[in-house]
Design a protein around this nucleic acid. Structure first.
Length: 466
RNA sequence: GGCGACGUGGCCAAGUGGCUUAAGGCGCGGGUCUGCAAAACCUGUAUUCAUCGGUUCGAAUCCGAUCGUCGCCUCCA
């Protein structure tokens, strides 16, 4: 299996440190607001990578942090006249709702910075003892010049950075590129006690501490959005590796942006949709299909038109699933040969190549056509055909990609009383028999208004939810 | 200014040296089925991969130039 590593800018053979265990850390949101659909892409794609690793037999420990100390949080809490903790509590709950709607598998741990103050302090102390971090009146900075491979992830060198520096001049820093690991408390800000006095941690150090605490000093995969490469991940490497003397993460994975009109979707530009708005309008499967149909590292343009075309794609999948579930209990019927071995192979080959989900998805759709065709051509297939088809789709499209959800189908049958619909269908059949097309169409239209679509076939009329 | 990514059909998008005279989804045209529709299936939709030049027996794929788009260098998934 090949994984593209931002650190080396190459696809590398994936070799976990301690197979079958895999440790994976993904930089999650700052919980000061609802996250937008661009953040959602990163979260969903990291979910799919995790699921595929599980499919491959790995035992994945998946950690996604929530940043709950930060300037934006403090500002917004002040605006609303509530505490930072009250604000983050609200948006943490919203985050959990949203990822659930996205049908993401919950992380093993969702660590928060405020619960890791001791670990953070320990790392800073180590850095200070090694002469890499320095304290200026309660503000502690990381001396970038002391870490010789600084810039190895982002491909930047310190000279270039200084030339183009748009960094504010801070008299306390020894070098303009140095960054805060501990910020002295200002009035009106939340603070924690430390050996340097009251203050709060810098953003980058939080992730270093939480990753080490929950996954160890060296982990397999560290992932996040493309914009985190510099400075966030670069600084995490500098701090962690300087503190431990060990490599921090073996594989660095970064997700492409979701764009609107070719521009990065972002809070600051204001060109965003919140994930929750979009998820209220479209099924999670449609969004996931949209994401999965392009490569995780490429930028992806976002528009309603594109979600809607993805939604049509999921409907095609769902139509097949209905047919499969209908046939699964059949006892008799003819046998048919389907080369599943090859399909699993193609799916796996695609995903093994740096998670080429677009190609993997094409294997699914090829199968959809083949299965539909078999069902039409041999109207009486045996149950084995249906079972194997369901097994294949569950293993790939559902468990790995999450672009279908079999649970959505079982619920209707069990809980709703559909006898009145069947009566309507019966009335319509009679009308059809009497060649009373007007009445037949009226019945069909009235059912459609209530959200039920009728489908006539050789085997009779069935309905589906709109 | 420095660093990086990208430009494939009407839209989205895979493919990065011969298996591809370019997957898959959506759309559109024609057909099968149907009372009609829906669904499904069949079929047609790029002699061509931004442009120009080069390397090669062979290039969308490698090299160079040109044009265009985007990102990072500041909080940001």
């Amino acid at each position: 299996m090949l994984v593209y590593n931002t650190l080396t800018r190459k696809k590398e053979e994936f070799k976990p440190i301690n197979p079958p265990n895999v440790s994976m850390y993904v930089c999650g949101p700052t919980i000061y607001d609802y996250f937008h659909i661009g953040n959602g892409r990163t979260f969903v794609m990291s979910d799919i990578i995790r699921r595929y690793l599980i499919y491959k037999g790995y035992d994945v420990k998946f950690v996604m942090n929530l940043t709950d100390v930060d300037d934006k949080i403090i500002r917004k809490a002040n605006e609303e006249n509530i505490t930072s903790a009250e604000l983050t509590e609200r948006y943490e709950a919203a985050f959990m709702d949203d990822i659930k709607k996205f049908k993401m598998k919950p992380a093993d741990v969702y660590p928060k910075a405020t619960n890791h103050m001791q670990e953070i302090e320990n790392i800073i102390e180590k850095l200070e003892n090694k002469g890499i971090a320095y304290n200026v009146d309660g503000n502690v900075f990381y001396n970038v010049g002391k870490f010789e491979s600084y810039g190895k992830l982002s491909g930047k060198n310190t000279d270039d950075l200084e030339v183009g520096a748009r960094i504010e001049i801070n008299q306390e820093k020894q070098n303009p590129l140095d960054f805060s690991v501990w910020k002295k408390a200002k009035s009106g800000e939340p603070y924690w006690e430390s050996k340097w006095g009251d203050g709060r941690p810098g953003w980058h150090i939080e992730c270093s501490a939480m990753s080490m605490k929950h996954l160890g000093e060296t982990i397999d995969i560290h992932a996040g959005g493309n914009d985190l490469i510099f400075p966030h991940h670069e600084n995490e490497i500098a701090q962690s590796e300087a503190a431990t003397g060990k490599e921090f993460a073996h594989y660095w994975m970064h997700f492409g942006f979701l764009n609107i009109d070719k521009q990065k979707m972002s809070k600051s530009l204001g060109n965003f949709f919140t994930a929750r708005d979009i998820l209220n309008q479209y099924p999670a499967e449609a969004l996931r299909l949209l994401f999965v149909q392009s490569h995780y590292r490429s930028p992806l343009n976002f528009s309603r038109e594109l979600i809607e075309s993805a939604q049509k794609g999921t409907e095609k999948l769902n139509n097949l699933i209905r047919l499969l579930l209908k046939g699964i209990d059949k006892v008799d019927g003819s046998e048919v040969e389907v080369d599943y071995e090859n399909k699993y192979k193609l799916f796996t080959e695609a995903m093994d190549d740096d998670f080429n989900s677009a190609k993997a998805t094409s294997v699914i759709f090829d199968f959809v056509r083949e299965a539909n065709k078999l069902i039409v051509e041999n109207k009486n297939l045996n149950s084995e055909f249906y079972q194997k088809a369901v097994t294949f789709l569950r293993a790939t499209a559902e468990d790995v990609l999450g672009i279908i959800d079999f649970n959505e189908f079982n619920i209707d049958d069990a809980n709703t009383d559909d006898s009145w619909i069947l009566e309507e269908i019966e009335k319509r059949n009679k009308a059809k028999y009497d060649r009373n097309w007007k009445l037949a169409d009226e019945i069909r239209n009235s059912l459609a208004d209530k959200g039920f679509i009728l489908e006539d076939s050789k085997n009779g009329t069935s309905y589906k939810m709109k």
